[in-house]
Design a protein around this nucleic acid. Structure first.
Lengths: 136, 136
DNA sequence: ACAGTAAATCGTAATCATTCTTATTTACAA
DNA sequence: TTGTAAATAAGAATGATTACGATTTACTGT
């Protein structure tokens, strides 16, 4: 179960256990797709009255730094999902209606022949956008 | 010259000629790389005192709608460059130090075998980030 | 169980990019 | 030259995100 694994990571790295952190992680394990800070805030608002922005963003960034979450920019807003860190490197189809993803197994970096003399390549992004079967 | 071509497009589409529009286009023809709204605002500020945000954003969006500019999200901020619309479909290496780009000729969509049954594919993004030779 | 301490959170203000609104100015067509 | 729609100015509003001082809480060692 991804949730316990993530809680374990937190513990190992010396971060404290809080119910809020568990709930944030539950949200993402349940959701399986890209979600925004305010999606999370809404979810948490049911249980926690007056939850601070600070808490939401601080934890989102912490989790991303610990590779528990990964993020992408979608129309000017950061979207987060559970990290696929352990799996083989891959990319995502992202449904821009529901945010759910589908793995793209291939990575374009393996296919481009072109070289970039004098350039330093640091990272790359490949995403396909559209509608998933459920959102047609 | 790309600039005249762009001014021509504006005229053909029934938009008015203004010196500001010409200067905005000059900025991008000179720059050759991804630039933000505030990069442009700074450039324009020399000539135009109290230039309105509205003018900057309205024209950036207009130019993008007319395919004179193209844009991409880079760390939560929109970046614009002259459109490569006429050229064959391609992607970009983007130097995240100076914003200059290099064409990637291949498109991953031609290489992925995987199909997406029931999915509608609307668009895609492939970008490589790093440092260009000049920014090493 | 208990106290000390650093980490986590709250409450809220600040910031940054962007959009919106109203009044005014301007390019251009008749 | 004049009428009109388009363009702009000035600045307020919005939305996402970050910052910060004050308070609370999880955990460590006793």
């Amino acid at each position: 179960m991804r949730l316990n694994e993530a809680l374990e990571t937190l513990k190992n790295e010396g971060y404290k256990y809080t119910k809020k952190r568990e709930d944030i992680l539950s949200f993402f394990t349940e959701e399986d797709g890209y979600r925004t800070a305010s999606d999370l805030l809404n979810y948490m608002a049911d249980k926690y009255d007056g939850l601070s922005y600070d808490t939401v963003y601080r934890n989102l960034h912490l989790f991303r730094d610990l590779d528990i979450l990964e993020s992408t920019d979608l129309n000017g807003e950061k979207h987060f999902r559970l990290s696929c860190g352990h799996d083989e490197h891959h990319h995502h189809f992202i449904c821009h209606s529901c945010g759910k993803t589908k793995t793209i197994k291939a990575c374009p970096m393996n296919y481009i022949q072109q070289d970039f003399p004098g350039y330093t390549i640091e990272n790359h992004k490949f995403e396909i956008y559209g509608k998933c079967p459920a959102c047609q």
